[in-house]
Computed example of a mutant assay.
Amino acid sequence: MNKEILIVGSGPMAIDYAKILLAQDIDFNVVGRGKESAAKFQLETGKMPYIGGLEKYLNDKTLSPNTYVIIATGTEVLMESLLLVLEKGASKVLIEKPAAISIGELITNKNKLEPYFDNVFVAYNRRFYASVIEAKKMIDEDGGLQTIHFEFTEWAHKIEPLEKAAGVKENWFFANSTHVIDLAFYLGGKPEKWEAYSKAGALKWHSKTNFTGAGITDKGVLFSYLSNWESAGRWAIELLTNSRRIYLKPMESISIQEKGTIAVIEKEFDNSLDLQFKPGLKKQLVAYLNDDEADLLNLRDHFYLSKEVYLKIIS
């Protein structure tokens, strides 16, 4: 079956997807809202988007039964776009994380989305980083993961002055921090028995700023995490096997501390794709288009994580 591909959105993320499709000589259509973003899209890709927005596009055109949609809009209209393309018969959808502006918006639409749980995938591209793929190989070599520690500190002083749509900064944990949390539990398993603690800080635009927790996953992996948005820190994941500690810090890189040693040594690996395109994006997109779903996050699991994990961390 020949697939028809539609990119929804004409901003920076849409351009990143388009560049990968163009590099593979895969044809696609793209729909945007404004003339300015469409002009930038054309300048970067050579392809002019349909202008006027998704609803107008879908009123003018019929989606074929084999349409694979990529939603790469702003966070504030992700859910609106998803509901529209599903209503019009999209076969499969890859939607930018976190698929809604808030956990509340996601949960509110559960009944509408439940019939499509296995055909919609949320684009947590860090699962496909070259560093993550290499780390998984090392974990397998060592006989499995024993312990995981991660940090999702956000730089509040950088976020505060950003101009974002209403609700985006207020839900920054869901929109941004879950990049790290999803990856941690993708590698270590879903939390099974655990405790979570959080507290508010001085930020006016986000309800919580300080987080910690620990427990065990359904794979028997012990985990802990912390994050303080009003102190120093960064995104990071530490993976402990019986032989070594693997650092993804920054997450595009790998450093190793062997058992019985103090030195932390950077590891070389093939990350050529992550240098050519936005990291993780090409392998994620290829998996989606080839129906290779093992490492993609389907909407069913995203609902579980959002309600049972993310909500517990933020609450």
Rank of each mutant, 00 (worst) to 15 (best):
G233K: 09
S207Y: 12
K56G: 02
I254C: 10
P12D: 14
H179E: 12
L6V: 04
I5G: 02
Y304K: 08
L63A: 01
E293V: 10
T153C: 11
N59H: 06
P250I: 13
K199D: 06
F223E: 11
W172M: 09
Y116R: 01
H179L: 14
D218S: 11
K208T: 04
G188N: 09
A130I: 02
V77K: 01
K164S: 14
L299P: 14
E134W: 06
T73R: 02
I254D: 12
Y310V: 05
I313Q: 00
A72G: 11
S81D: 00
K137I: 09
V85Y: 03
F150L: 13
D218G: 03
P161A: 08
N290M: 02
R127V: 13
T75R: 00
V30C: 04
G34T: 13
N290Y: 00
T209W: 03
L222P: 00
F211S: 07
T217L: 08
K164P: 00
E114I: 11
I256H: 13
V168P: 15
T62D: 13
G143W: 13
H179I: 07
I70V: 11
L58A: 04
K3N: 09
I254S: 09
A130Y: 04
D274S: 09
V122G: 15
I262E: 05
T62K: 13
H206I: 14
